[in-house]
Amino acid sequence: MTVLTDDILPTSGRAVRDEMIAFAVMAGLLLIVPLTGVYPFFVMQALCFALLACAFNLLIGYGGLLSFGHAMFLGTAGYVTAHALKVWGVSPELGILLGTAGAAALGVITGLVAIRRQGIYFAMITLALSQLLYFIYLQTPFTHGEDGIQGIPQGYLFGIFNLARPTTLYYVILAGFLFGFLLIYRTINSPFGEVLKAIRENEPRAISLGYKTDQYKLLAYILSATLAGFAGSLKVFVAQNASLTDVHWSMSGEIVLMTLVGGLGTIFGPVVGAFVIIAMQQYLAGFGQWVTVIQGVIFVTCVLTFRRGVIGEIAHYFRRSL
């Protein structure tokens, strides 16, 4: 059966302590970012993608389901939030809620179709579904086709926080990221998460133990879609646009790449992976299509020699779970 992480240690007191320390370090570093003079736009963008990769990782790392279409949730939530903010003029919190709900609804619909097949077929189906959605968004008027929705007003969150101020926006995005991250952490360590891991390791056995595995997989898929949508809604406030790039298959590929680089099935891996890939794109932006080539090389290198990813290798070396 699917064995992606060969050396996950059982959750012990020590593991929980390690994870708490790592979380505290991560949260602490992210909290002081505005004081350091690091370009906040970059970190905000990376945080949105980190949450997206974490949501994706919930599905592959703990459910053993490789979705090659997660960009559809990013893009859908982005379009809904952008449209609600710009055309309907709703408040930011309602915009985020609508976008996330849109992605959740899409998760229910596509999930019911996609979980009918497993393994490699699941990947192909999710890819095909996201391509279907790409063409729909290309043609429907509200997305404005190739132009996308641009110049989105940021507004005041809860009527108090001015999201047009970079520092305020940064802490709002950070709060959203930490909320999503902790929700995923909680899910992984819940009884539900344990059943997911059992399904990943040996589905027939989980079925024989009486678990309705399809329902668990569907629920994990919807949860992952919803959180990916949440990340997409947050990203609208950072980028101030919603465009077709966010729904394209290459975006789905980038999400996979981030998680692979950081470490499939690790808690902190997707965060590290997202920062690495976004940073790479920033620094190599002038090299045009060579960025694609480099991404391809990273894919190949990771799969051939570095399957555990950055965090996975560190955890393996210290025999810890991170």
């Binding site: 393994g119 692979l260 299509q289 080539v293 991404q295 391809g296 090389v297 894919f299 799969v303 051939l304």
Partner: peptide, 21 residues
Amino acid sequence: HLYGLLLTFGIALIVQGVFQN
């Protein structure tokens, strides 16, 4: 199986990227 998909996806990116350049 998934690793095969990921590896060949990487190969596709490399080949297409080089030709696009």
